[in-house]
């Protein structure tokens, strides 16, 4: 089967995006052909600006337009509490919860020597420097509860605790509004172990 080359190229590029299969890529490409030109221009600009206008915050490595991100610049945030996350996407997730009003520090990954990631390749040196410059009294570790995330939490706790800072890790358990019967055994097991006295 012969497909016109520009369409073929567009499908292949879209197919490289996470979560986009061959069929979806084709649907998206065909949809764009039918769309108005202004829409395609806007989309192009939006995509380009992701690379041109966005950078990493100089302090916390969150995504930012300026040297420091909105959260770091805000004077309404609690400057003494620091939440450590893996990626900028985790900042967005926690911000949506509206339950945290402190500052963040984005590591840019977790320890994984198998894939060549050691502490040097993460923003850990910068994290330690923040304890010297800022008045941080409490750290919340909000890393994923997998093998690498847990080890990274253990590692950071080893580094931070001697500085006299309170260190905690976010709790794990059942999702809110979820049905107990649909939760997997490991989650229920952990929720049992980490139960709370009423």
């Amino acid at each position: 089967m012969q497909i016109a080359e520009p369409l073929q190229i567009a499908i292949e590029e879209l197919n490289k995006l996470p979560g986009i299969g061959k069929k979806t890529a084709q649907r998206l490409a065909l949809h764009l052909i039918k769309s108005e030109e202004t829409y395609v221009d806007n989309l192009l600009n939006a995509l380009k600006n992701l690379k041109i206008k966005l950078r990493l915050c100089n302090r916390c490595f969150n995504l930012s337009v300026e040297e420091f991100c909105n959260i770091c610049q805000s004077n309404k945030r609690d400057q003494q509490t620091l939440c450590i996350v893996e990626e900028a996407s985790d900042v967005i997730a926690i911000e949506k919860s509206l339950e945290f009003n402190g500052l963040y520090h984005v590591l840019g990954g977790v320890l994984s020597p198998l894939t060549g990631v050691t502490a040097d390749s993460l923003h850990i040196k910068e994290l330690i420097l923040r304890f010297e410059k800022e008045q941080i009294t409490e750290v919340i570790l909000a890393l994923n509860p997998d093998t690498e995330g847990e080890t990274t939490s253990l590692y950071l706790a080893k580094l931070i605790k001697p500085l006299g800072v309170k260190v905690s890790r976010i709790a794990r358990g059942l999702p809110i509004g979820g049905d107990l019967e649909f939760a997997d055994e490991a989650t229920i097991g952990k929720a049992m172990i980490n139960r709370i006295t009423l």
């Binding site: 320890l111 020597p113 050691t118 990274t152 590692y155 080893k158």
Partner: peptide, 23 residues
């Protein structure tokens, strides 16, 4: 990580080994 440390012995890597040991 033990393999990495064998090639490049740094104090930082030693702390990392401790974390993996704890895990």
């Amino acid at each position: 990580l033990l393999n990495l440390f064998r090639e490049k012995k740094t104090r930082n890597l030693l702390t990392e080994i401790d974390a993996w040991t704890e895990k």
